[in-house]
Nucleic acid binder design. Structure first.
Length: 477
RNA sequence: CGCGGGGUGGAGCAAUUGGAAGCUCGUCAGGCUCAUAACCUGAAGGUUGCCGGUUCGAGUCCGGCCCCCGCAACCA
């Protein structure tokens, strides 16, 4: 049963480079997208970069570049990283693109027309040195740490989104799972946010220059978060190509890490309701990484560059290592020393070696390949499929790798290398069976390890299977 | 009492609605030799943070306590 499937990652802020966190979300989305494509669904997989706002402008200035130049460079870094990781997205949206601005303007105008936006005043601490609002949290001894000066309390005229008007509806949608929020802890957290008091929020900035002007007040720029969320609809033609938009909306799954839950679970559905569109079907929130027990972050300088992982383990290896280690949806601690261990144990010794020994035996005994169905129990296949549908990606992998172990056991039990030519028939039968299972495993593993999967399928579709170079060469620690 | 997550054999993690505590790595002992010094079999190793409660039965529910971590207007 073919269907349409729209999946998104957050668009990543250009203030930072790609790191394991962003890579994790993106790989997971790619796996799910590939899985759907493999079963014949029509898929739209969106990712991109969030490029406006004071921070981006500041970073550009620091780098001595124009915001346009700077953001283009960072966007390219993301595209390169995703290419290296073999991410097959259908679209990469940049919020500085015209198509985005067009949709956003329509969206904002409609909010205004629907009386979801009103004029008010925004009050905050403003540091003249930084030329931006800073939060109390950022203060050191009541002063801006960068400029060592006390920020001024400033009021600026802003436009506000009437969030409070939509809160009851959004809460109900979450409670009834019309917006599914998973894992369930995150649903509880989202519902908890309502109790903490949510207020209307400002959707524009007067002081910020780097952004999209409000369509009904060009002196103001749209608050970057508001406009960023709208990428999910602008990329599919909101306000521009209605048919295309409704072909994909509402989105099936939005993946993200837990820090942006509030924006996606509450603000975003509220804004959609305000313009008369449906809320997302599902928001799936995964956890954070810590690295060797410490919080990952630029300030600690312990981020891991996914490109380095690809260089060391290959794209399949990097994808596997990130997805296999922790339950998708929970926090996990990355121990870099375990990467090599895991790679060797599962990919080199497990899948890679199984492929080698099977191919070698096939070649050695010149076994004629057949494309028969393998003897893998269908309930196991179903378990794997449903694990992927539930986004229990690590479980799906675990179950697939159990199948690999089974073939190894089977080979050992039958020991075809001990059979002499009087048993040639039996020997060929065993090996054909192994080959069929390897082929099936290759298909199962495709969303996770697309390159290895393709190689195995090609190798094992020949009438005479030959041994080839190792899929995953062992890495010396 | 701001919100949320977590504390399980040496290490990293699992345990759908409460019911014989599993997996991977590592360690030790065998086996095999087709394979990437790989693969297979077996063993050792846990009073599931602490205390109390509910129950025929709790890692799993309830109460209290002790630690660790994340979030609280913009780093996934």
């Amino acid at each position: 049963m073919s269907k349409r499937f729209y999946i998104t990652t957050p668009i990543y802020y250009v203030n930072d480079r790609p790191h394991v966190g962003t890579a994790y979300t993106t790989i997971a989305a790619d796996v799910v997208a590939r899985w759907h494509r493999q079963r014949g669904d029509e898929v739209f997989f969106l990712t991109g970069t969030d490029e406006h706002g004071a921070k981006a402008a500041e970073s550009a200035a620091k780098a001595g570049k124009s915001p346009e130049e700077f953001t283009a460079e960072i966007a390219q870094l993301f595209q390169l990283a995703w290419k290296n990781l073999n991410i097959k997205y259908d679209d990469f949206i940049r919020t500085t693109e015209k198509r985005h601005a067009r949709s956003v303007e329509k969206f904002m105008q409609l909010l205004k027309d629907n009386d979801a936006i009103y004029k008010g005043t925004y009050e905050g601490l403003y540091c003249v040195g930084c030329e931006k609002f800073i939060t109390e949290k950022e203060l050191v001894d009541g002063k801006c740490p960068l400029h060592n000066r006390v920020p001024e309390k400033i009021k600026e005229k802003n436009y506000f989104f009437r969030l409070t008007k939509y809160l009851d509806t959004v809460r109900r949608l979450i409670e009834t799972d019309e917006i599914v929020i998973e894992p369930v802890e995150r649903k509880k957290e989202a519902l908890g946010l309502f109790q903490q008091g949510l207020e209307d929020f400002s959707v524009s900035r007067e002081k910020v220059k780097w952004g999209i002007p409000l369509p009904f007040d060009s002196k103001q720029v749209i608050y970057v978060w508001v406009e960023a969320l709208q990428n999910y609809v602008s990329a599919i033609g909101y306000g521009d190509d209605i048919d295309r938009f409704h072909r994909w909306w509402p989105v099936d799954v939005q993946l993200m890490a837990k820090d942006i839950l509030k924006f996606h679970a509450i603000y975003w559905p509220a804004m959609l309701l305000a313009v008369g569109e449906k809320a997302p079907k599902k928001e799936f929130i995964h956890g954070f990484f810590s690295i060797n027990g410490k919080k990952m972050g630029k300030s600690l300088g312990n981020t891991i560059d996914p490109n380095d992982m690809v260089e060391k383990f290959g794209s399949d290896g990097a994808r596997y290592l990130l997805l296999s280690q922790f339950p998708f949806g929970q926090d996990g601690d990355i121990q870099e020393s375990r990467f090599v261990e895991k790679y060797n144990a599962d990919l080199a010794n497990g899948l890679g070696n199984l492929v080698s020994r099977t191919a070698n035996l096939m070649e050695k005994y010149a076994v004629e390949n057949s494309m028969t169905d393998p003897g893998i129990a269908s309930d196991k296949i179903e378990e794997i499929e449903s694990a992927i549908q539930e986004l229990s990606l690590e479980n799906a992998l675990k179950k697939i790798f159990q199948l690999i172990a089974e073939v190894n056991k089977y080979l050992d039990a039958e020991s075809p290398w001990k059979m002499d030519d009087s048993q040639a028939e039996k020997r060929a039968e065993v090996l054909r069976d192994c080959a069929a299972r390897v082929r099936r495993i290759a298909r199962l593993v495709y969303p996770f390890l697309p390159i290895a999967s393709r190689r195995i399928e090609r190798q094992f579709s020949e009438s005479l299977v030959k041994k080839e170079d190792p899929l995953f060469p062992r890495i010396q620690a």
